[in-house]
């Protein structure tokens, strides 16, 4: 029993949309850093250096 063509096409289309959805919160976070000027990863690196 094979996957029908209509379902296969829908799965492909929705999978492509999903890539964008997976990336969306990451992109929004990066955008918020750009707007606010925050660099939290630098803070972590500095803290790690101090604690060494």
């Amino acid at each position: 029993m094979k996957l029908d063509k209509v379902t296969r096409n829908k799965i492909t289309r929705d999978a492509l949309i999903s890539i964008f959805l997976f990336a969306l919160p990451v992109l929004l976070m990066l955008l918020s850093f750009k707007i606010s000027g925050q660099r939290p990863w630098k803070q972590q690196a500095a803290t790690a250096k101090v604690s060494r």
Partner: peptide
């Protein structure tokens, strides 16, 4: 942000 990334 971690909450949103993981939830999705």
């Amino acid at each position: 942000w971690g909450f949103a990334i993981i939830a999705v």
